[in-house]
């Protein structure tokens, strides 16, 4: 995917300026097989009942993280859940695209589950690399992905086929995210029973498209998964991991990465290394939790997948 980053530089600045990194969710609506994304903000109109299937996405809650710029990732997840609760309208469920915890500790899983439950929505999870640090992730899978003992599974909702993938294990030296042969074989089999016209939503923690080779923000065998999805008319790929919004549309596939509810990471090319942005200006934490960030997100809305047809 040589042209994998299609955003203009000015558009990207618009997105990053608003880097709505805490207490924020994304609301997705599927109408006629075309998913559209809207950032959650304080606009009452957002809470009106939309037509079609709606669901919520959050990501990278990193419960247990307590360092600059966020000494309490539980608090910001709680605020995000309050926002979801206020904005969910008729959303059918929520997706958490991984890094639920900071260190895969049982108490961090407990805390995250309790906070997410407050949103009042059934929640489907995919594992992030922070969630599978212990015992090959078995504790996370048992608790958060009961439908898939290795972290991958599928389900259907209102005619849309949802696929949850695990691309955070058995990573190779110098490599990126990894799906592996067994998961790709499962995906091929799962998709073989689907009609081309069925809308597909794929969730995975690490981006399936290469956002930054240097920082490992991509998936080594992501192209093999995307090849299996090529025949479908509407494919939406939802990722986390990079703690910032990036979007692109390539053919019939729309890609979107979600913000974290815990801390922001720099955009590739704007810093020497990834990781938490520690030097937010004083007071920026609380101001970003509020309306300021939301305005900037709205400014960037022309970049969202809204009204973008995915079929050929």
């Amino acid at each position: 995917m040589p042209d994998s980053r299609k955003m203009t530089s000015s558009s990207r600045r618009g997105l990053l300026r608003c880097m709505a990194w805490a207490g924020c969710g994304v609301r997705w609506t599927v109408i006629g097989g075309v998913p559209t994304a809207r950032m959650l903000d304080g606009d009452a109109a957002m809470a009106t009942k939309p037509a079609g299937l709606s669901f919520m996405q959050i990501s990278d809650s990193h419960i247990g993280f307590a360092s600059q710029p966020n000494m309490d990732a539980s608090q910001t997840l709680a605020e995000a859940m309050a926002l979801v609760r206020a904005q969910k309208a008729d959303a059918a469920f929520m997706i958490h695209t991984g890094d639920v915890s900071q260190l895969s500790k049982p108490e961090q899983f407990d805390k995250a589950a309790a906070l997410v439950e407050a949103a009042g929505l059934e929640t489907h999870y995919v594992p992030g690399e922070h969630d599978v640090l212990v015992d090959d992730g078995k504790a996370f899978f048992a608790r958060f992905t009961p439908a898939g003992s290795r972290g991958w599974y599928a389900f259907d909702q209102a005619g849309v086929h949802f696929i949850a993938l695990n691309n955070v294990q058995d990573l190779k030296p110098g490599g990126l995210g990894n799906l592996g042969a067994a998961q790709l074989a499962w995906l091929k089999d799962d998709l073989s029973r689907r009609a081309d016209s069925q809308p597909i939503v794929v969730c995975a923690h690490v981006p399936l498209w290469t956002v930054s080779q240097e920082w490992g923000w991509g998936t080594d065998d992501g192209l093999q998964a995307l090849a299996l999805l090529r025949r479908f008319g509407s494919v939406t790929v939802l990722n986390g991991h990079i703690h910032q919004v990036m979007q692109k549309v390539e053919g019939n596939v729309a890609f979107h990465t979600a913000r974290s509810t815990a801390f922001p990471q720099p955009a590739p090319g704007t810093a020497a290394y990834p990781g938490p942005i520690k030097d937010l200006p004083p007071g920026r934490l609380r101001s970003t939790l509020g309306i300021t960030r939301i305005q900037a997100v709205r400014t960037s809305s022309p970049l969202a997948i809204i009204d973008t047809p995915l079929g050929a």
Partner: peptide
């Protein structure tokens, strides 16, 4: 060797 979380 490498970091299995950040293999770069």
């Amino acid at each position: 060797y490498f970091c299995s979380l950040h293999p770069h």
